[in-house]
Write a protein that binds this DNA or RNA. Structure first.
Lengths: 235, 235
DNA sequence: CGCCCTATTGAGATTCATCAACTGCGGTGG
DNA sequence: CCACCGCAGTTGATGAATCTCAATAGGGCG
């Protein structure tokens, strides 16, 4: 879980377009205002961005790469709460401390915005404020779906739901391939399963011809309808 | 799950103190402003307050009794996301629709506030706005803890964590008794277990003398430290 | 080419779910 | 006042799903 090679570069950007150009606008939308007061940072694979319990001085937006947000139990058990892709915002906390640990799934570029700037901007711009509120509620709603998955779905249903989620997020259809920026262990920790169970479920879907697995980090959707049916429990 | 006897009475209150007096102030705090534009309603045990997918025209505050928020799968599997006690706010949604179903655990009294009033007040009062934001973030943080429970804890740990949560919420110490307004099936659906497994775990804790079970709806805390240790996985 | 890391597959152990019987309590009515 | 009924909870026996442990495979990189 440790990574020696990773280093962390900060670089100050003037303002605006260069950064904005890299962001999928459908996700960040009007939060663009934040970019004007943000700093770019870079993290290597498996590097920690912040730990649960750290002072929550900054919020972040993913620019490139992927991030996982997780909780660790004292004996090492891990639960991943969320995978973040470009455009996603994280580290925007209730209290003084981060409630989750953030780690880079792959090499990742993030924009960092200080808490005070965040608050100032959201006080000044009702639009930004509403967006942040709406962001939180969407996250809450996503967490609730995640609860159903962990509490009431079988292993196969969880893995399938996960793939369907990714497919929807990417707007993928039959024949398209999905990128899996995370490893199998990450998927297992997101789904509350072991890595072996995840593998078996994937192999199973593959031999049923619902998916293809051209490489470790790619899955081809072959029959999205069937996957959606399995995800909801219609065998 | 259907209940014939339950009926629903609405009654308009003038303003203020009579209602405020019934509320535990530590929870609602300055959200008191909402009370001035709220309506009181009453629901019987197991009665539905709103369904997932219903138009989210109102937000609610529990005044007396308990409420469960849950998700249902098409085949009847149920996951309870949250139990609400007096002072808790719910039904404050991201989109046009409620993302969860709300049902009365017992006979319950709620204050209802229209979405438009809610938005107007939160636009006019920065304090209320910040409180709602903070409320959402606390809920999100609670949901994340719930994810760990469902994804990574054993049955015994889950049941124990649940009791510890209740004890903390009630500020209970060794020797104190907790009220369990919900039934065993509700607990099971909250913890992602079956009713039998919940029973066995409770019986187990009882025979280890960590708790007492004077009645169906009460649990006596005998050794909170030991319970907390089990909840975290220190056998 | 060979090593290392990740993923996959296999066999046996364990936890929890399922199915079924029984208990205890509160309410109702004789 | 007591007997019966019904529901919620508890306990027991069995089985299935998933975890654990172990061996094997595959891909990228020095």
């Amino acid at each position: 879980m440790s990574d020696a090679f990773a280093t962390n570069h900060d670089s100050y950007y003037p303002i605006g377009e260069t950064i904005a150009a890299e962001l999928p606008t459908h996700r960040t939308g009007e939060l663009a205002a934040l970019q004007t007061v943000s700093t770019m940072s870079r993290f290597g694979r498996n590097q920690t961005i912040f730990n649960e319990g750290d002072d929550a001085n900054y919020s972040y937006t993913v620019v490139a790469g992927g991030v996982r947000l997780c909780k660790l139990m004292s004996d090492g058990r891990r639960q991943i709460a969320e995978f973040l892709l470009p455009g996603d915002i994280f580290g925007f906390e209730a209290g003084d401390e981060h409630s989750l640990t953030a780690e880079a799934l792959s090499d990742v570029v993030v924009m960092r915005c200080s808490r005070s700037n965040m608050e100032r901007i959201s006080d000044e711009h009702p639009v930004v404020r509403k967006q942040l509120l709406s962001l939180l509620r969407r996250e809450l709603s996503a967490a609730q779906d995640h609860l159903v998955m962990l509490g009431r779905q079988t292993a196969k249903e969880r893995v399938t739901s996960f793939l369907v989620q990714l497919a929807e997020r990417a707007g993928a259809a039959n024949g398209d391939s999905l990128d899996l920026p995370m490893g199998r262990q990450d998927i297992a920790d997101y789904l509350g399963l072991t890595i072996e169970t995840v593998c078996r479920a994937l192999s199973d879907l593959k031999s049923s011809r619902l998916i293809g697995i051209p490489s470790r980090h790619q899955v081809t959707i072959r029959n999205l309808d069937a996957l959606e049916a399995i995800a909801v429990g219609d065998e």
